[in-house]
């Protein structure tokens, strides 16, 4: 997950949600067998209890939930050519679409199948598309056992050339699906006021007018009362460490291991804040330690929570547990 601020933008930040390497999914026996077929440049369906052929196949009959595909005899090679049963034109493809030129999504019923699979049809122009038209797959050379082993379908009966691929491979049992989503986020008034404080080295919280509790980082709503909490409170950058963890697992964006993160109850706040603890060896970190914020030098500050580097022990006597146990 990464978030970057765009210079000169209307204060919206680009936020990317991405899982490096993608999600890994086991295929199970039926989907795995179909994907193995795709890797070999062949299309297979599976017979349902009513005798009809399901493509793409699933482990269970969509109508009766009967288990499908357990016997070799249940498997039927279909297509590779087929008929478009419905379609829709995509005039402006996305970067993550199968084609970088206008194309159609279509449900395609391969010859010998009774259901249809979704794929792209490279018809060139919208006028070339029609329900009932014949199409055939265009296979990729580098096939891995994925629905994308079919690059797209092309108009006509084919022949569907199958570029040779590696042989003697294990059947497909896993699938890796990369995914990436982009967002444009705006901070909102509560967040912006908090960040404005952080820009000048001031931690700000909000107080609930009903119960009087002070929340930091601030929230616009008191979570206990469900009512607005919008009275602003400037808080000192000192407090007590209520609990902590020593981290030994390296992670992208995290400090060098071992590092300590902990909850600090700022003086005057009613909720502890998750922060880094440093300038102390991890063996010496204790619950009840008095701590103070360490800020980046004034001339290096930006409008960011990163101005607050970490909290460090002040050397004052430890706070007795009874004084902060409600916040642990």
């Amino acid at each position: 997950m990464t978030t970057t601020r765009e210079q000169g933008s209307d204060e919206r930040v680009r936020h990317v949600l991405e899982f490096p390497g993608g999600y890994t999914r086991s295929t199970g026996p039926v989907i795995g067998r179909f994907l193995t077929g795709l890797r070999d440049g062949r299309l297979f369906g599976v017979r349902m209890p009513d005798g009809k052929v399901l493509v793409p196949p699933t482990e269970y009959d969509p109508r009766t939930a009967a288990v499908l595909g357990t016997a070799d005899d249940d498997w039927v090679e279909v297509g590779p050519a087929g008929t478009v049963t419905t379609w829709t034109w995509i005039a402006e493809p996305r970067a993550d679409h199968p084609l970088d030129r206008p194309f159609a999504w279509a449900l395609i019923q391969p010859d010998g199948a009774d259901t249809a699979l979704l794929h792209a049809v490279d018809a060139g122009e919208r006028e070339a598309m029609a329900t009932g038209m014949r199409v055939h797959p265009t296979w990729r050379a580098d096939r891995t056992g994925s629905i994308k082993d079919i690059a797209y379908f092309a108009p006509g009966d084919g022949p569907a050339e199958v570029p040779p691929s590696e042989t003697d491979l294990e059947p497909v049992s896993m699938l890796t699906v990369p995914s990436r989503l982009e967002y444009r986020l705006r901070g909102g008034t509560v967040w912006n006021r908090f960040i404005d404080g952080m820009a000048v080295g001031q931690i700000r919280g909000t107080r609930c007018s009903t119960c009087g509790k002070v929340y930091v980082p601030p929230r616009g709503v008191c979570p206990a009362d469900g009512l607005p909490a919008t009275e602003w409170v400037d808080l000192p950058d000192t407090g007590v460490l209520t609990t902590f963890a020593v981290n030994n697992v390296p992670a992208a964006g995290a400090p060098e291991v071992p590092f300590v993160c902990g909850y600090v109850l700022l003086d005057g706040a009613d909720i502890a804040m998750l922060v880094l603890i440093s300038d102390v060896s991890w063996q010496e970190v204790r619950l009840g330690t008095r701590v103070k914020a360490v800020w980046v030098p004034e001339e290096e500050r930006t409008r960011s929570v990163k101005n607050l580097k970490w909290f460090a022990p002040t050397g004052e006597p430890d706070v007795p547990f009874e004084r902060y146990e409600e916040y642990v």
């Binding site: 999914r25 295929t27 994907l35 995509i90 999504w105 979704l118 792209a120 629905i147 994308k148 699938l175």
Partner: peptide
């Protein structure tokens, strides 16, 4: 996630 999501058809395409 096996047959459709990798193609990214989206709600409008569907």
């Amino acid at each position: 996630p096996y047959y459709i999501a990798p193609l990214m058809p989206g709600d409008i395409g569907m």
